[in-house]
Amino acid sequence: MAQQELDHLSGQTTTGHEWDGLKELNTPLPKWWLYVFYVCIVWAIGYWFVYPSWPLVSDYTKGFFGPSMRSAAIADYEGGNAARLANASGLADAPLDKIKSTPAFLEFAMANGKAAFGDNCAPCHGSGATGGPGFPNLQDDDWMWGGKLEDIYQTIRFGIRSGNDKMRDMTMPNFGKDGILTKEQVADVATYVMSLSDTAVKGTDSGKQLFADNCASCHGEDAKGNIEMGAPNLTDKIWLYGSGVAAVEVQVNQPKHGVMPAWEGRLDPITIKSLAVYIHSLGGGK
């Protein structure tokens, strides 16, 4: 490379590369630019030592300062929790209606409750809290065990038929299966029950009498239910196990009973309160 060709138009040297008569001019890069490349290469090698990089036989190089995405994520998560709790100091001891009326508490409880609902409640009640057959809809205004803030709080804490000491576990007898009522009587009373909310169904006097004798003690004379016993209102449009005479017959014959776990001990007190406030706010709360 002692002698190089000169491009006579520009007066610059060429690199000697030529394509179809076009020659590449040699426009030298400044030296400092080259040094910046070298520095970048050295910098890149630095990564080998600072971060986990090389695979070994049964392990890998850990990096000088032991960085780990996992521990960083956990630290972020815990830092976030601590920061949020700092905003809500006093929430753990605050009564439920105080949480509802204090904007800072309410904001925290709504956000925390929404997240906790997605993690813990959505598998049964659905991500929109609309439930499904056998799993109560928490959006509507029909509450078997009460829809007041305190009632919801109690249900979440101790559950229903959960095995918890303070659970509520009333059950409905197997009127048909255990021979309390005959098959015809079951059909009769089911038809009467359905007639209470559906004007197209006509009930009989015998059905009404059967209801008064067997059902009214829990569901009430007017069949509007009793939240003390978890007895649902039979006069409204909402049916946990399906509407229609046939569905009611099945439920009278051998009732299905849902189970709600007790969350006290599984979730921290602040989260349980947050869940109660969140669920109560969904729209159906009393």
Partner: peptide, 17 residues
């Protein structure tokens, strides 16, 4: 005919002036 340049023109990297 090919015009040529000396060593000065053949450098790939330019010194800073």
């Amino acid at each position: 005919s090919v015009e040529t340049a000396g060593d000065e023109g053949s450098k790939l990297y330019a010194d800073h002036k």
